[in-house]
Design a protein around this nucleic acid. Structure first.
Lengths: 229, 229, 229, 229
DNA sequence: CATGAATGAGATTTCATTCAT
DNA sequence: CATGAATGAAATCTCATTCAT
């Protein structure tokens, strides 16, 4: 996966040579930059590499984006937008609660798996204490409906008497994401330490099912089971 | 938390001036280096800052550790050793299964909370595809007993008929860690996006209980509940 | 004054957008360039700023002037031409000598005050060892009559027995200009060092009178007064 | 003179190669920097040239001075300090007034002639609106006594009935300096325009005497001579 | 006549590392 | 054991200029 991410930009560059097409140039830069930041983090990324992988003069990067940090922010916004775009959570609100939650869990997991850049950039951003995310105008609004969707499904499930009654929507969201995130974000260290190939298709499929089981197992269980007192 | 991490080294520097105490110098370097790598990642860390925060000549760092990367590895080993040291998982094998799992979940969470450096370094290391971890001789052995402990508790719980039968030890470990990790590692972005202060004591305590509930809810539930087919 | 000079170009730009009027474009460029070179010197000037302040495509600047340096020379010629144009020194030759000199002193001072760009460009040009001026075909001819005028007034004053006899026209010209120039060219440092606002109207008026007094005091005095031997 | 200034640093560099003598390194840098800023101004100066002319690694410049601008300020402070150091104006206060003024005029002129860097840096600084000078802590105090000296000499000369009564100390200082400054600062353009070699020894000596004559001619004259009303 | 896109050379600055003592 | 001085390579960014239409 290392090589895959690191070289993706190089493979795509295919010597364009002076496109005279600003849209194309801009998007080639963004592409190369995403690969670079994803592979090396913010501090480790090199503007020179972004320039050469996007087959563009280095100055053009500064012309379009102003600075390495601003370029990173542009990449970050693109990635986060993609995440929320694909979640379509509003569509789930009408489903039977168990089905709705299952779909939410699965789509979260699937999007994480399909977009490894997302998880890496989320890590990078947290290494930087989220300071670039906080500068973004465009990202936060994307998250406004998410908790509502969860809340709606939860309440409907509780009204039907099938979900346990003590569930907090924020905690549930953090669990759904966390169960997928850690497995993916820490794949490299975990594969080594546990001596398992966590990137294998079999393992990934198995994990997907496990996460659904955990979330639904928890939601469908009784609040008292295993409680401390 | 940003400031806390960033300034920790500065606070400790207290002008030692030529200690002529190799042990002390070495450990001051390691301390400052941990703070630096934790605050800025590997690429973002600065040898100069480590030197000045440890009140040590820059050359001494190279004398003791050879390179910035080697110093990073030393820090990484120290941090991972601390994690496994504190887990005492062997002690849990004798406990009643529910109690054993609960303790494992709680101690994992507590150690993560108590050592924010750990989580940040785990992220940093995965940004670097785990390549430094893989160079370490000392870390992997620490993990050898962990899955056994989980396996033992699982099997005993299943034998007693209280745990569901389809649980994989690796997945369970990943879930226990992931439920805590994501919440902590991504605190900065999540607090901003969800408009909640995830670092508040109340939220942390609540999360701890939630995680226990999720893990035990899952283990104590029936395999069929909510299953796809 | 800083802001005044620096922003003058910006104020004038007023979005022309494709004038299709070559004369107007050329003159807008020259205007913006004068402001830019005056505010930042030759090395500090930016072609980009000149383009944006003159609301003209950068390429047009190269089309009309060929290079940044050639543009600078064009600006320089314009400024020097303005200086000599306004001096009308030939008109003074007929006046009574004291009156003629007084008028020359006053008009030199007044023109310097009215055209701060002139003094700044003269400084800039001397920082560059006068090399651009020397390339100009148009400037030197403007100066041909100046010393003659002074010479004529001097000789008539000496013939009348009112001017001292040992006066050199070149030195007199340098003094007339220098007494005004230094006060204006070094206003920023001098105001700070002497803790006086040399730009105030009162100070400027006072200085004008002082310079007349110095020049006439010198010319009307006797050669022996205060002489070394 | 162009070549002289521009190459002065090069001549002095004489391949030191790793002096291990911080004082010497620092002062070689300052020397080379003075030459560079004097020859090319602030914007035109090149850190690379300063490094190579001082036979020092470029980084050492940043290590010692922090930035190009800070280095420029250090040079500026050194130059201004030299000016006031050499003026010894306090020594002049006891002299007979005519003698005191004559000496002040001569020493000002002589110092300007002996230190062409001074005049050029004063011009450079005014091109930059004096903003670096204003940042300096050390320069202004040097100027505190200067006006007092002039005032004292003026008042004594007026008490003796030999100096005219309407003289302002600030104006007198500006005239003494201006009469010398313009001739020197604008030598390159003036020599060309007036078709005289203003740098020739004869011309310089003549100018020195002229300036003394002008200042004393003015001071010893009567206030009414040539006055407007 | 005029333009927006793009470039190459070089500017300042940074940083891990080594030298000499 | 420890240090202050110094370095080379490379990083980010700038800027006058040219290309293609």
């Amino acid at each position: 996966m290392v090589a895959e991410l690191a070289e993706a930009g190089a493979r795509k560059a295919t010597r364009h040579k002076a496109t005279r097409n600003p849209e194309a140039s801009r998007s080639r830069i963004l592409n190369a930059a995403r690969n670079e930041f994803v592979s090396h983090g913010l501090s480790g990324a090199r503007v020179d590499r972004i320039a050469s992988h996007s087959a563009v003069n280095k100055n053009l990067i500064y012309h379009y984006f102003g600075s390495k940090e601003a370029l990173y922010l542009a990449v970050l916004e693109g990635i986060y937008a993609g995440l929320r775009e694909q979640q379509h959570d509003e569509d789930l609100r009408e489903l039977p609660p168990v089905e709705g939650i299952r779909r939410l869990v699965e789509s979260t997991f699937d999007h994480f798996v399909a977009t490894p850049e997302l998880i890496r950039l989320m890590s990078v951003e947290n290494i930087h204490f989220g300071e670039y995310l906080k500068r973004s105008r465009s990202i936060k609004p994307l998250y406004s409906g998410l908790l509502d969707t969860i809340e709606i499904l939860l309440r409907r499930g509780q009204a039907e008497g099938i979900f346990r009654s003590d569930v907090d929507a924020v905690d549930l969201y953090l669990s759904i994401s966390g169960l997928a995130y850690f497995f993916l974000s820490n794949q490299h260290t975990l594969s080594w330490l546990l001596e398992r190939d966590l990137a294998s298709r079999r393992r990934v499929n198995k994990r997907r099912q496990h996460i659904v089981d955990v979330v639904l197992g928890y939601l469908l269980g009784s609040p008292l089971a295993g409680a401390k007192g």
